[in-house]
């Protein structure tokens, strides 16, 4: 079965695709950090950052509609968190609604804060989308390792990502088999079969884990996964990361002045 992989398009051939994952990670994190420090009321500063990000996204040569779709999937979650900000922040009321004893009002400060958070969130989301579109997941983990992330975490994440799709396939096959045998089932029967299915899936995953460990042992595993570091940090990677970060900092300082 085929899945839409989380890092679809990440094996492309743009400059950013070939950039060292560690350098790219630092570049994106510092870019986001520069943007999130913009205070409410300074929204005009977001425009050059958005243009910079757009240039970066276009340079990845990934279809822009795919990029937009990916980023916009996250936006509802940001809205869910921020939707009450205009109503809760104290300040100058710009809109009132009286419902019985309940007074609902939007304040100017609340509205500006909401607007600010949405813009920040969008730039941060699309920056992460940029990272995701140009970096396979395992490269990202190696980037984290090069900054001293604990191997136990990066190795666990790498194996989890590898087996996520294997287990999803197994789950899909089991659901198909269940559906083929459940004809107009009662709700209780549906829940019962679903809980059994989850239990069996857990046991199968556990057994697979054991077999995988045996396969590792057969190839000399002694507790530490050893990798060859294929990603040499090159001068051009450092130069590109510095260029982007310095541009962002200059924009931030110049436009705030």
């Amino acid at each position: 079965m085929k899945h839409e992989f989380l890092d679809h398009h990440s094996c492309g051939h743009s400059f950013f695709h070939h950039m060292h994952p560690g350098a790219k990670l630092v570049m994106v994190v510092l870019f986001i950090f520069t943007v999130v420090t913009i205070e409410p009321g300074q929204e005009r500063i977001f425009l050059p950052f958005a243009v910079l990000l757009l240039i970066g996204l276009l340079a990845t040569r990934v279809p822009i509609l795919h990029t937009l779709a990916k980023g916009l999937k996250v936006l509802p979650f940001v809205l869910m968190i921020t939707i009450f900000v205009p109503f809760l922040k104290e300040g100058e009321p710009v809109w009132n609604l009286q419902i019985g004893p309940l007074m609902i009002q939007i304040t100017d400060e609340g509205w500006k804060l909401f607007y600010n958070i949405i813009l920040k969130a969008n730039i941060a989301i699309f920056s992460v989308v940029f990272l995701n579109l140009t970096t396979p997941f395992h490269h990202l983990l190696k980037g984290l390792q090069s900054f001293g992330a604990p191997r136990i975490i990066t190795d666990t994440l790498a194996v989890a990502y590898r087996y996520l799709f294997v287990i999803t396939d197994e789950k899909d096959r089991m659901l198909l088999a269940r559906r083929s045998r459940l004809i107009h089932p009662s709700l209780s029967l549906q829940w019962k079969s679903l809980s059994q299915l989850i239990g069996v899936l857990f046991l199968r995953s556990y057994e697979r884990g054991e077999r995988m460990y045996q396969a590792m042992c057969m190839r000399g595993f002694n507790g530490v996964i050893v990798n060859l570091d294929e990603y040499m940090l090159q001068k051009k990677d450092i130069a590109a990361a510095c260029l982007v970060v310095l541009t962002a900092l200059l924009l931030r300082i110049c436009m705030s002045a």
Partner: peptide, 23 residues
């Protein structure tokens, strides 16, 4: 092993095939 998904646990084919010699 019978099921290749038990044997191929690394992110890339290179890492999987290199796993033994590296160990």
């Amino acid at each position: 092993f019978q099921d290749p998904d038990d044997q191929l646990f690394c992110s890339t084919i290179f890492d999987d095939v290199a796993f033994g010699p590296l160990n």
